[in-house]
Nucleic acid binder design. Structure first.
Length: 568
RNA sequence: CGGGGCGUAGCGCAGUCUGGUAGCGCACUUGGCUGGGGGUCAAGUGGUCGUGAGUUCAAAUCUCACCGCCCCGACCA
């Protein structure tokens, strides 16, 4: 490919709209252009890189036994009513009507479509197991599109769906996808990590997210320093610290203490001169319109996802001021579990606490010497705190967890029979009995993976593509495009490399060398070959890896083979 | 939706506080000198100052409303 035959438009300055390195670089290198918030055009170089991600995904899905299909992006709304997800996804679905006034949606995902399809197609255990996948554009009316392709309103996703005869049989399908994902991100040159994950609106109870580790990530994960445990903080657990003081045999009677204008945990613990962890933090949440209380140690935060799952609420958020007042009878800041008439959920680490301090549901008043078992009526002790760096690993006895940021590029779920039941997706088993299919679903954000690669692989001069994703693996710069010998040498080298299956771009522009060097670095081609009058005089090309600081000279004869050997 | 910031040429910005009819760098066009890390000289092209209303003799500048973009929170591949 010749530079002058494609379209590459680079920018000198960082566009003001971009914040993180990968977004800036995608715009500067001319990989994408913005139409409006969360909507982007893939320019030629961006498209080429995107196609490379797609090819790797497709190859690995095929290798894992996946069968490719392509489903409609537009779907009748009624299938979402069948699955019961219409209201859950109301907020994120683009909804339209056709000329018959029929309600349609632009698909944010395809569990409904595939299950509807499979319910008609599969009748017998002889057709199982099967995994179908597609690579397709998804539409989500994101609350906040962000960071270019990282969170867009329209994005490209690979989604796969497995169908098995039973929950146990589905393990193999799940594992096959999990393994394929590991290979995919490895081949993409990404430092990704599988972590245990919350299932959210998807349902099911077993899932892993694949996280690209980078500070720009929107998710927090914790990992154990001594074992394999890693989890999204939305569901991560911790080892319950042992209680240093246990004087249950000598319980002090509960008493009140005046705390004028001391609202926050920090205020009260300073005012009473006691450590924050002896405080029982009581937070009121709105669970489908009803108040519930969460109790955690004063120095900890509640993990809302874990609590929402425990409570079993669809819509779950912090209660507003009115609900807090209504539930506790006191202004915000004085909530406590004593005589509080809402369901109480306490963190496991509070079990056995007998000298706690807590709000008295009355302005300017707290209780002390609170015994959680004696003085409150906790509904459930469960793990509900947000895990953080320094907490003990829940799996091994010795490990400590540390926190990292990550971008979720893939997610695998074991779904069970939720959708199959809704759509009547059944089959006849060997005994002739009607059974419900067991499903799994598996997503990879193709466009997000592309940008994550740049986020993870760049330096101050531009992108440093993993070889597998680079739009071109080799860039040949002709320093003077009116020097005939240079042009001929570049042309024949290009031809030889292409015959070897290597993607090559020849920069044949009439530009000064500096411009070509800068663009080549910005675009991040793994190998740069310079063809000039000077080097040609010695029958040599100058070759430099994007990651190397200095070039090497190779002889023109056999240059293609030498370059092939150099390819990372 | 709540909180914060921004909107002036394709990109990056100044001018706004203190009103007087728009400027700089890069890019782009033509020509010259150049030719190994975004060169240089000369001459040019390009702007309803986000939109609408208002105040004023006069608005990029002041007022109000709306729109768009970005960042922080709830959503997720």
């Amino acid at each position: 490919m010749y530079w002058s035959n494609t379209y590459i438009s680079t920018l000198r300055d960082d566009p003001q709209e971009a914040e993180i390195p990968s977004h800036k670089l995608m715009l500067r290198a001319g990989l994408i252009r913005r139409l409006s918030g969360g909507l982007y055009t893939y320019m030629p170089m961006g498209l080429r890189a995107l196609r490379k991600v797609e090819s790797i995904v497709r190859e690995e899905m095929d290798r894992a036994g996946g069968i490719e299909v392509l489903m409609p992006a537009m779907q009748p709304r009624e299938i979402w009513e069948t699955s019961g997800r219409a209201d859950i996804l109301e907020g994120v679905m683009f909804q339209i009507t056709d000329r018959q006034d029929r309600a349609m949606v632009l698909g944010p995902t395809h569990e409904e479509v595939i299950t509807d399809l499979i319910s008609r197609e599969i009748n017998t255990y002889r057709q199982l197991p099967r995994t179908f996948y597609q690579i397709q554009t998804k539409f989500r009316d994101e609350i906040r599109p962000r960071f270019g392709l990282m969170r867009a309103k329209e994005f490209i996703m690979k989604d796969a769906y497995s169908f098995d005869v039973s929950w146990d049989a589905a393990d193999a399908s799940y594992q096959a996808m999990y393994d394929a994902y590991v290979r995919i991100f490895e081949r993409c040159g990404l430092n990704a990590r599988a972590v245990e994950a919350d299932t959210g609106a998807m349902g099911g109870n077993c899932s892993h997210e694949f996280m690209v580790l980078t500070d720009a990530g929107e998710d927090a994960i914790v990992e154990c320093a001594s074992c394999e445990y890693a989890a999204n903080t939305e569901r991560a657990e911790r080892r319950i610290p042992s209680r240093s003081t246990s004087h249950s045999e000598a319980l002090e009677p509960m008493s009140t203490v005046s705390t004028p204008n001391q609202r926050t945990i920090e205020d009260v613990s300073t005012f009473l001169d006691i450590p924050a962890e002896r405080m029982i933090k009581t937070l009121i949440f709105n669970a489908d319109g009803k108040p519930v209380a969460a109790l955690v140690p004063g120095d900890r935060d509640v993990c809302e996802q874990k609590l929402a799952q425990l409570v079993g609420a669809k819509n779950f958020e912090a209660a507003d001021e009115a609900m807090v007042k209504n539930a506790t009878g006191a202004p915000v800041g004085f909530a406590g579990p004593i005589n509080l008439d809402v369901p109480l959920f306490a963190d496991r680490s509070l079990e056995g606490l007998c000298d706690g301090i807590t709000g008295a549901n009355q302005k300017d008043l707290h209780y002390c010497n609170v015994s959680i078992e004696r003085d409150t009526t906790i509904q459930t002790f469960h793990d509900i705190v947000l895990v953080k760096s320094g907490d003990g690993c829940p799996r091994c006895d010795t490990g400590t967890l540390s926190e990292r940021r990550g971008v979720e590029v893939g997610h695998v779920f074991k779904l069970g029979t939720k959708y199959a039941e809704a759509f009547g997706a059944t089959f006849l088993d060997e005994g002739g009995d009607l059974q419900t299919l067991t499903m799994g679903c598996y997503g990879i954000g193709i466009s997000r993976t592309l940008q994550s690669a740049i986020e993870q692989c760049h330096d101050e001069n531009g992108i440093v593509w993993p070889s597998a994703l680079a739009p071109f693996q080799v860039a040949i710069l002709i320093l003077k495009n009116d020097h005939e010998a240079s042009c001929e040498a570049a042309a024949s080298l290009c031809e030889e490399l292409e015959a070897m299956g290597i993607d090559v771009i020849v920069d044949d522009r009439k530009e000064r060398p500096g411009v070509k060097f800068k663009d080549s670095d910005l675009l991040g081609f793994p190998v740069r070959v310079v063809v000039s009058e000077r080097s040609l005089a010695g029958d040599e090309f100058e070759v430099k890896l994007r990651t190397a600081s200095d070039p090497v000279m190779i002889s023109v004869a056999g240059a293609a083979n030498s370059i092939k050997d150099l390819l990372p």
